[in-house]
Structure formats: structure tokens, C-alpha cells
Design a protein around this nucleic acid. Structure first.
Ligand SMILES: [Mn+2]
Ligand SMILES: [Mn+2]
Ligand SMILES: [Zn+2]
Ligand SMILES: [Zn+2]
Lengths: 149, 149
DNA sequence: TCTTTAATGATAATGATTACTATTTCCAAA
DNA sequence: TTTGGAAATAGTAATCATTATCATTAAAGA
């Protein structure tokens, strides 16, 4: 299992490197580390969380670099921001169509795959004044752990 | 028109006062001012914006009070938070079922009334592990002004 | 009116993010 | 393979939004 994940992550990193080159982004060890951490989890980590993980094996990476890099990746569409909480931004390297649910108690963010939520027809509905680009659905509830607490 | 809005707002304020009493909240001039500003607009203002408006006629109101009061109102369900941007929280006194669209350029937030978006069946779908409370849909696009720019 | 307790205002503290700048490093061209 | 220069990084200071603290004030029931 962990082997398979590692292989998948390796693939993703290679794709990431290719895309970086296409985009004219320099491929640095920091950027690879940041992308790798994000691609290795489905936890939607914050900047700080990613920073701490990398610190373990790359002790002199700068928090500033992590902030800047995540922002760069996001602007270029290499990753996405999961805008869920009112404090820290949470990131996601998974670009497959999906939505998220947040536990209102422990603030955990999990993926929700449901075709009926990713295929809403919003083209003509809504405000005619807007040129609609997309939408995101954020569900909220209480997770199993927090219910049994 | 402006007369009619004023009447509607007056009504809302009276309802707000009644609800406050029911909830055991003290009715203070600060609270009335904050609720009034929020009930008078469809712009989804931030704390800072509300604070500045009130300052004009109530110069010694404290920014802290505005923060604290909006949080109190939100916790009690008197208003809602529109979680759209990554910086400041935006509030809404309009509790009718509706969603929001953000202009990705100017960050304006507008209401979207569309029954098909407010009546999604999320009860059984999604993660069985969660006890679902609700959902919010955030559309994004470019507004008319920003397209003609 | 009096009393109690919640609410407020002033200010300090915190947490997340951004700005700045000197130094380093990627990488394309020679 | 070297090398020049632009891009990226690290370290630090600054900023912005929000929260904590605490002494003072005021709403509202007795
Ligand atoms: Mn996700
Ligand atoms: Mn609204
Ligand atoms: Zn939970
Ligand atoms: Zn706009």
C-alpha cells in the first residue's frame, strides 16, 4: 500500500516537473519537496503543516518559501486552494473534480466524490451579469470521531 | 425606494430586538447599529467596513466591539458568515436560502437565488461517516464591470 | 433606584501572510 | 563545463485580521 502510494506520488512529481518546465518554472529542491508533501496526503494541509513536515528532512527551508511557492503553484493551476476555514488557507494537489466536507468540531477536511455535486448546470442559471468560471461546494457536519467524542 | 428600504430595515431591526430579548442578549446601541448596517446592505461587508460606516455617526465605537458582536450574532444564528475570500470574513444578515458568487477580479460578492442550488439532496450522498448539517455553494466568475474594464 | 452581570473600549498580543533584500542557485548559452 | 544572469531562497521585519485582557460602563430586572 505505502509502496503503491509512493509510486503514484513519484509519477505525480514527474508530471509536476514536466509541467514546471513547460511553464518556465525553475525546478528547485524546495519546490519538489513542497509538491511532494501535498501530493502525498489527502489531508488538505495548511502552509504551516507542510512547512513542518519538510523541516524534518530539510531543516533550513524557509516558511516564506512555502507560502510563496504554494501561491505560485495555485496561480498556475498546479494545485488548488480549499477555502474552508476562516484562518489558514488549506491546499490540495488533487485536481480531480471533487468537493469537500469540513467537520465543524475538529476542522478536518475530507474529500467528497459525488457526481451529482460536480456536474451542476450553472451555465445559464444564476446571475446573467457574470461570466461563470466554476463553483465549489463545501459541506459541513460532524465527523464520526467528534460525535462519539 | 430608499423610503421602502428604510421601512424594511426598521422591521428587521424590530425583529432583531425581539430575538435578542428571547436569546437573553442585551440590546445596546452598538448592537443595533451593527445589525442595522448589515441589514441595510446586500454587499456582504467585512468587519472593518461595518466599523467605518458606524464611526461616521457613532465615533467612539470600538473595532473590538464590532468583531465581538458579529461573532456573537453569528453563533446565535442572527446573521451568517459568507466565507469567500482568504483574508477578511464577510457577513450577511440575509438568512433566506441563497448562495453567492464572487468576482475573481474585484472580489465583489453578490447573491445568487436559484432553487436548484438551495435544494440539493445531500442527506444520504457523500460521506456516510458524517452527520451532515448543511452546505454552501460558492460560484466564481468575472462580473460585467470587470469584463468591460 | 439599586444591583448584578453582560457589554464595551482601549490596548496589547497573537497568528497568518506579505514585503524586503542580500545571497544563492538553477539553467541556458557559450 | 564553465559562466552570467535571472529567478528563487532565507532570514527578518512589517502588515493585516483577529483575539485576549482588563478596567470601566450601562442594560435591565428586582
Ligand atoms: Mn480534496
Ligand atoms: Mn447574501
Ligand atoms: Zn471532527
Ligand atoms: Zn468584478
Amino acid at each position: 500500500m505505502s509502496e503503491i502510494i509512493t509510486e503514484m506520488v513519484k509519477e505525480k512529481i514527474n508530471e509536476f516537473i514536466d509541467r514546471s518546465k513547460d511553464l518556465g518554472l525553475k525546478v528547485t529542491p524546495q519546490r519538489i519537496a513542497i509538491y511532494k508533501e501535498l501530493a502525498s496526503t489527502d489531508q488538505h494541509p495548511s502552509t504551516e503543516t507542510i512547512y513542518k513536515k519538510i523541516k524534518d528532512y530539510y531543516p533550513n527551508i524557509s516558511l516564506t518559501t512555502v507560502y510563496r511557492t504554494l501561491e505560485t503553484f495555485e496561480k498556475l493551476g498546479l494545485i488548488s486552494v480549499v477555502n474552508v476555514l476562516y484562518n489558514a488557507a488549506r491546499y490540495d494537489a488533487n485536481l480531480d473534480p471533487h468537493n469537500h466536507i469540513v467537520c465543524t468540531v475538529c476542522k478536518k477536511v475530507e474529500d467528497v466524490y459525488d457526481a451529482s455535486l460536480t456536474t451542476l448546470d450553472i451555465s445559464d442559471k444564476t446571475l446573467g451579469e457574470y461570466q461563470i468560471k466554476g463553483y465549489s461546494i463545501l459541506l459541513n457536519g460532524v465527523c464520526k470521531d467528534c460525535r462519539s467524542n
